[in-house]
Each structure stands twice: as C-alpha cells, then as structure tokens.
Design a protein around this nucleic acid. Sequence first.
DNA 1: GTCTATAGTAGGATAGAC
DNA 2: GTCTATCCTACTATAGAC
Lengths: 189, 189
Amino acid sequence: MRPESRKEEIINAASILFKEKGYSAVTMRDLAKAMGIKAASLYNHIQSKQEILATIIIDLAEKFTNGMDRIVKSDENTIQKLENIIDLHIDVTLSNADGLASLNNDWMHLEEENLQYFEKMRQDYEENFRDIVKRGVSRKEINSFNIEIIVFSTLSTLRTLYLWYPKQRNIDAEILKHDMVSVLLKGIA
Amino acid sequence: MRPESRKEEIINAASILFKEKGYSAVTMRDLAKAMGIKAASLYNHIQSKQEILATIIIDLAEKFTNGMDRIVKSDENTIQKLENIIDLHIDVTLSNADGLASLNNDWMHLEEENLQYFEKMRQDYEENFRDIVKRGVSRKEINSFNIEIIVFSTLSTLRTLYLWYPKQRNIDAEILKHDMVSVLLKGIA
DNA sequence: GTCTATAGTAGGATAGAC
DNA sequence: GTCTATCCTACTATAGAC
C-alpha cells in the first residue's frame, strides 16, 4: 500500500462510517473513535465534517465526469459506448466502493457551491447517457423500448454496484464486466 | 380521498421529509413545521420519532413479503413469476413512493426487534427471488448468466423505481409494466 | 499530533396550562 | 389538540497545554 496521509486515513474511515449509517448519523466522536483518537484531534487535519463529505463525493463525481467525457468523444458505436460506461462504473466501484455510498445517499447534505457543482455533474452525466441511448435507438443499434426506462434501469443497476460488489469477493472483475454487459444489454429471458 | 387520521398525516409528512434528507437529518421541529404545529404537539399522536420510522418501513416490508409469498405459492412458470414480481414493485411504488425511500435508505436506523424483523423479511425476500431465478435457469426458462448478477441487477432496478417513477407522470402504469418487463427480461441490445 | 476543557447550539422528549 | 417552557443530552468546533 502507498503511504496515506493522516487526512486520507480520516477520509477513508469516514467513508466506511458514512456508508454504514449515513452522513448525518455519524458524529465526529464516532469518527475519532474509529481512528483511535479524540474528536478534537481530527481538526488538526480537516476543517470540518462538511469538508470530509465534499472531498469524498466531489472526487468521485469528477471521476465519472471525466470518464464519461472520454466515452462521449470516442467514435465507437452505441454498444461499445455502453460497454465502456459499464467498465467505468465497475472500475470506480473497485477503487472506492465505500465512498460511492456517500455519493449516492448523502449528496443532498453538500453545501452551497459543492452542491451545485455536484448536481450539475450528475445532470450532465445522465444527459450524456440518455443521448447515447437515443442515438443507439435511432440507428437501430438497440431496441426501441421507452428510452427513459432503459436509462433508468441501467443507471440504477450501475449506481447500486457499490452495495453488492464487496459481497462477491470470488467474482473476477473481468467476468463481472462480461456478465454485466450480457445481462444489461442482452437480457436474461 | 379517505379521511386521514392525524397520525397518518404525520407519517405521510414524515415520509416526504425522510425522503428528502434522510431520517437522521430530519428533526421533530422540521416535521412539526411541515404540519403547521409545534414539535411538542406531535407527541399527542405518536410516541417517538423512532415509531414513525418503524411504521413507515415495516408496513411496506410486509406488503412485499405478502406479495412474494403469493407469487412463490403460485404454479406459474419463471417468466410469469418474474413479471408478477415486477408488478408487485410497481404497485407498491405507486401506493407509497415516499415511504420506499425510508425502506431503502433508513432501515439501519430501526431499533431492536423491528431491525431484526425487517432484516429477516429482506433476506427472505431476496432468497425467494434467487430461488425463482435459479429454478428458471435449471429449467432453461432464462439464460444462464451468473445468477447473482441477474438477481442483483433486477432487484436494483426495482428497488430504485421510487426515485424515478414520480418524475415520469406521463407514463401509464400498464405501459410502464410492459416496458419494464421487456427491458429487464428481454434486454435492450 | 494529540490531549482536556469547554463554548455555543440544537436535538428528542416531557410537564402542565388552555 | 395545541401551546409555552424547559430538561437533559449530544453535537460541531475552538482554545490552549503538552
């Protein structure tokens, strides 16, 4: 493992606690106890509880935004783009499954500029996703079911990966990617 | 509309607030303000904040449990059973989308017996679902992708319906059911 | 970098008047 | 059924010693 700064250790410990109980239910005393120190000591490394939440969420949201930008700019077909989006979600989940819980469940506790910044990234991500599906339907690369239902069902599954993947230790990442592509794109029936 | 008791009004108002900010971040003063009264007045109708959460979640979990029991007992084939499960989720979502937010995100704040009762119902539900998928695979009624991935992706989508359906006012429930079945079972590619 | 002590605020819940 | 007043606890964050 690479050496973590004390601040990174705190943020990682916080990610786990936020995942278990949610941002609002985790106290600075809880976090300090998990670190083996007193609550007051945390403030030598971080400015506020809010700063911890923002660091967790914004970093992850930017990873998704950058990944999506690359996929949108590529000249691959719709199916390949959807496969790349699935890969992106699996890769981010593997790198920080705990933090994704905060991104999914506690984003509304971000304050001011960070809340706006996050909501803009999230909306742009969804619109890029929807545009890829739309283009796929008009080019007859994918079935013309209701576009919103395709977008919703696919994104729901990808966004919930963080809950499920840590329980499936024995599934190899490549097999996961392959089967996820099969189930999401080719159907199960 | 049927006449609501004051307690039901409080629980409905709480469901909306819990959906927006989560159980821990909603105060009894917030809830009282939404009802147009003072916080102390709430306690003439409910015993505690915890009782409100338990009422919301346990009622919904029992609806899912009872619905699944009926489906399991029926002698329909796997595809029909999966269609009935999709129907069940759509029906419960239509009847109480706000409450489903608490069931999905705040169940860990249940206390004692209610937490155990909920976790048992949730686990049984997942196992019933998994058994239906397993039987479908062994009878070659559905494709033999990784069973856990099928269970996970389908349940993720159904569990997240509450977030998405209220935004899609113009989709008829029957069309939603039909397209959801198509997307989840037959694939999009 | 961590501690003790504490300021200042806000939380859930109760008592008793109307 | 709702109110005002209040209890007691717990929260985030700071000050200053070591």
